[in-house]
Amino acid sequence: MNKHLLSAADLTRDDAVAILDTAVELARVSDRTVKKLPTLRGRTVVNLFFEDSTRTRISFEAAAKRLSADVITFSAKGSSVSKGESLKDTALTLEAMGADAIVVRHGASGAPHRLAHSGWIDGVVVNAGDGTHEHPTQALLDAYTLRHHLSSDEGALDGRHVVIVGDVLHSRVARSNVLLLHTLGARVTLVAPPTLMPVGVESWPCGISYDLDAALPGADAVMMLRVQAERMNAAYFPSANEYSRRYGLDVRRSDLLADGGIVMHPGPMNRGMEITAEVADGPRSVIVEQVTNGVHVRMAVLYRLLGAADVIGEAS
């Protein structure tokens, strides 16, 4: 495995399966009364959040704490970051504090790559979402969730069909999922209005459609991306209503999925925009479960990147 986790493309099929398998084992630990493992005792994990993201930050914090790491969290608000301190100076500060791993969320695409390769720091860098580039741990938790429902916790996702719908252009979740799900053997179809598809998307390892009703029948899962209503001001689509009609997921559309097909969303949802409340809270929805799985997957990532010895069994 690479030293850092910057892109879902960094993961081979074996790497990805190993992380998912580790996450399954760690999830079993979480069912115990004492949830904590001593694995990362004495190691320092820094959560460096230049962008607000309560759910991702809490998920990483919980993951590191359950592995007994010392956890330091920097958030943009109320820290030197909001006073204009540069990425470099923040990184040097963290390095001086002896961070073993830096989990970074940043509004600029490639910021984690810069942290990892600029020579500013020695620690492991985990991308917790960078600009409109990638969000590899989100893809891992999505793969974990898919595997749990579609492949009973082992192997990969060969032959499964996943439809990803929405603002692909600005979505780091879509980029990482296309890469990872392809690596794991799944077939992915991206659905969006042409204005929200990136230039060159035809070369990505996935199918492309502008028609949600045509893409959904028989799919094993549909993943709805958050669409910001402001996008209509930049002429990406005419109105929120038109977007919902053409690309929103309602009960009629979710029933086009295969039997047992699931509905996913990385959150936070715009209920009534890309997904109706009936579907979000309905029987096919695994949206809350995705959040839970996020902690297990992030534990697995930290566990494997920090080269922890095989001590999962120790606490039992």
């Binding site: 695409s109 490639g110 960078d130 600009g131 409109t132 580039h133 230039v199 070369s203 990505w204």
Partner: peptide, 10 residues
């Protein structure tokens, strides 16, 4: 703007 900008998210 190209295939690469789409991949890099720039």
């Amino acid at each position: 703007e190209s295939e690469l900008s789409g991949v890099l998210g720039l």
